[in-house]
Design a protein around this nucleic acid. Sequence first.
RNA 1: GCACCCGUAGCUCAGCUGGAUAGAGCACCGGACUUCGAAUCCGGGUGUCGCAGGUUCGAAUCCUGCCGGGUGUACCA
Length: 552
Amino acid sequence: MIRSQLKNVLDACFEEGITEGLWSDKATGKFTVELPKHEGQGDFSTNFALVLAGIEKKNPREIAGQISAKLTKVTELVERVDVAGPGFVNVFVKPQVWCALIPQILDTAEQFGTSDVGARRKVIVEFVSANPTGPLSIGHGRQAVLGDSIARLLEVTGHDVFREYYYNDAGRQMRVLGESTRARYLELIGAPFEFPEDGYQGEYIIDIAKSLVEEHGDSLKDYQDVSPFKKQAEQFIFNDISGTLARMGIKFDNYYNEQSLYTDGHIDDVVNELRQKGLVYEKDNATWFKTTDLGQEQDRVIIKSSGEPTYRLPDIAYHREKFRRNFDWLIDIFGSDHIATVPDVLSGVSALGYDPSKVTVVLHQFVTLTRDGKQVKMSTRKANFVTVDELIDEVGVDPVRFFFMMRKADSQLEFDLDLATKQSQENPVYYVQYGFARLCAILRQAEEKGVAIPDFSDVDSSLLVEPEELNLLKTMSGFPQVIESSALDLAPHKVIFYLMELAGQLHSYYNKHKVLTDNVPLSGARLCLIRAIQVVLKNGLNMVGISAPERM
RNA sequence: GCACCCGUAGCUCAGCUGGAUAGAGCACCGGACUUCGAAUCCGGGUGUCGCAGGUUCGAAUCCUGCCGGGUGUACCA
C-alpha cells in the first residue's frame, strides 16, 4: 500500500518533468516501483531512469539524478534517494511512514487485506465435480482445496462468488455402480451373482449393499431394474463426499445435475443451434461438431451412433447455461486429465455467441504421496489409503489444506506424509500457526501482568526502530497486494509463501527482542505491533481456509 | 506425430509477468531455554536456472529449435 503511494508520487514527478520539458510523455505507464532483493538497495526501487533513457535516448544516470532530486523533496514520505548500478533509483522511506501502518491495520482489523477490485463481478467457480461413484480421492482433494481457496480469495477481493459442483448421476458409470451394488447385495444374501467386468471393487460398495439388506432383507433379490441399487449407492456416496467436504470447511452453493440439461431441452437446443450455423453434420451414423471450422485439428463426435451424447455436448451446454445465468467470469478447476475438454468447450461457447475469454480454466497436475521418502502406490486396492478422508484422519484438516496449496496448480504436488504429520520444527503449517499462537501467548501474559494494551494514539511509534520491526511492517504493508494478486491470478500458493515469510520474521523478532519489559512506553509500542501482526496472520490463514488457533 | 504442463541447490519447490550479487523449506553439521511458549532462533551453499541460438541497456523470466519427464490426443468422463 505504501508502494502504491510512492507510485503516485513518482507519477506526479513524471508529469512535472514533462511540463518542465525534461522528457516527453512517451514512457507513461511503462516504469514500475519494485521491491529490491538486497539490503542497501532501499525500501523501494524504480526502473524509471532506465526505461526513460531507452525511450528518450539519454543517459540513464542523468535522468536518475533528475528524478531523485524531485523525489527527495517529498519529505513526508521519503528519507533519502540513491542512484545505483546502471541507473536504478532506490528510495528509502521514513520509518514513521511504516509505523503509520499499525493503526490502519488495527482499525480495519479483519477487513485488512480485503479490497473491492472485483467490483462485485459475478463469478462462478466450478470444482470437484466428481460423479458419485466413490469417495473423494487425493486428486479431488487438491482440487477441492484449490477451488475453495480461490473462491475465498475472490470473495475477499470484492467478487460475488458462486460455488458449483457439477455431476452426472445417469450414464454408464452410474449404471455400473448400480450393478456392482446389486452384485454385492446378492452376494450378501447368498444368492448367485455375477460381478460386472469393470465393476467398482471398493469396500464401500459392500457397506452400501449391507444397508440394503438391513432395509429390505432379500426382497430385492429378483429385481431386474438396477435403479434401487443405484439410488442407494448414489445417496450413500454423496453423503460421504459432502461429509468429507464439510470436514475441510467446503460448502457449495449449488449441485448442478447434468440430467437437467436433457430434461430442460438444453442439449437439443445446443445441437440445433450449432446445426443452424452449419457446424454440425452426420457421418458414420454419428453426429459431429465441425471444430475444424473453429481452428482445431479434427472434428469431434458429439452424439455417438448409439444415440448417446459424448461428454463434450453436455459440457458445452452446461457452460452455455453458466453464461445465460449471467456470470461475468466462469472459472473451472479441472484435473489435467480433463484438458481435452477445454478446447471443445471454448469452441462450443464461442460458436454459440459467447465470449470465451470470460472462461478461465485452472488445470492442476497430479498429487503423489510419499512416506519414508518413497512414493505410496495409489492402487484401488486397500492397504494404501487413497481417500481424502483417510488423509485427513492421518494428518488433520489444516495440514491437508496447507499442503495442497503449497504448490502452484501447474506443478505436480508431492505430499510428504512424514512432514505433514510432524508436530514440530519442520512442518510449515505449524510454523505459521505457532507464530499466531505465540502472539496470543504474549497478549495473555500482558493481561496477567496487568499491562494494558495502549491505544495507538497514545503510543510513541518512534520507539519502533529495530530493523526486525521495520521489516515486519514492510512485509505487512505488502499483504493487500499479495491477496489481490493471488486472487486475480487464481494462485493461493502465493498466500502460503507470504505467510511463511511473515511467520519467519516474527519468530526471529521474538527471539531477539522482548515485548514485555520494564520500559512501559516501548512495551506499549511493541504490543501494538504484535497485535497488528496477529491481525495479518489470522486474516491470511482464514482467507485460505486455515484456522488460527490461539493455543496449540 | 500433434497439443498443454513441467525441467532452478542432494530432495521438494518459489521467483512479484524483463531488472542489480538467483531464493525458501526439508535433509545434514555446530551452537542458544533460571527471561513473553524451544512446534522457536542463530551460524554453515562451489547452482552450466535442461541444451543451443535469438530479441535488448539487461533474460531463470519473452521468441524459435532441440533433449528429458508428465498428461491428453476415443463414438470413456
